[in-house]
Amino acid sequence: MDARNVRIGETGLEQLIQWLRQNGRPQSLEALTAQYIVILKELVRVEEEA
């Protein structure tokens, strides 16, 4: 994905929620934010590779 199309707080939020559910434990906002960055990096990287 082109990073210009990323909207913080919307893009990748579903993946973040799935990660939180699969994790099985309540998470701090800091941990969630770090994971969100990982998800966004992945989304941008996948598109770049394609």
Partner: peptide
């Protein structure tokens, strides 16, 4: 970023 995630 935390504020953005919390707001979302």
């Amino acid at each position: 970023l935390q504020a953005e995630v919390a707001a979302a």
